[in-house]
């Protein structure tokens, strides 16, 4: 098998995640989709690491995980406080950007 297939899989997962961000309204699911996209990237990094025979790709994937963890912590805190004030986790309800 050609290891490039891992990259195709990563691209597919990334696209699915991105589409999910666009069509879901629940902020939590939205976050999950973002996590999916990040994981897809990680898979690509790991595959690249293997192809090039050095560990830098894995290091980058590791950092991505750390950043994702931080993002999730803050993002979920935002969702919780948003839910407290608006009693909803829908991103459409927060359409305050429109005049």
């Amino acid at each position: 098998m050609n290891p490039v297939n891992y990259l195709y899989l990563a691209a597919l997962l990334f696209t699915i995640g991105a589409t999910g961000v666009l069509i879901r309204r629940n902020a939590i699911v939205l976050f999950m989709c973002v996590e999916l996209m990040l994981n897809a990237c990680n898979l690509a990094f790991v595959a690249f690491s293997r192809m090039h025979g050095n560990l830098d790709g894995q290091i980058i994937a590791f950092f991505t995980m750390v950043v994702a963890a931080a993002e999730v912590v803050v993002g979920l805190a935002i969702i919780v406080s948003l839910f407290r004030s608006r009693h909803s986790a829908s991103v459409d309800d927060a359409s305050l950007m429109k005049l």
Binding site: D92, S95, L96, K98
Partner: peptide, 14 residues
Amino acid sequence: LQNGYARSYAVSMF
């Protein structure tokens, strides 16, 4: 186009 929905903006961004 400016409908205030974050997801709409996300579509244009994507």
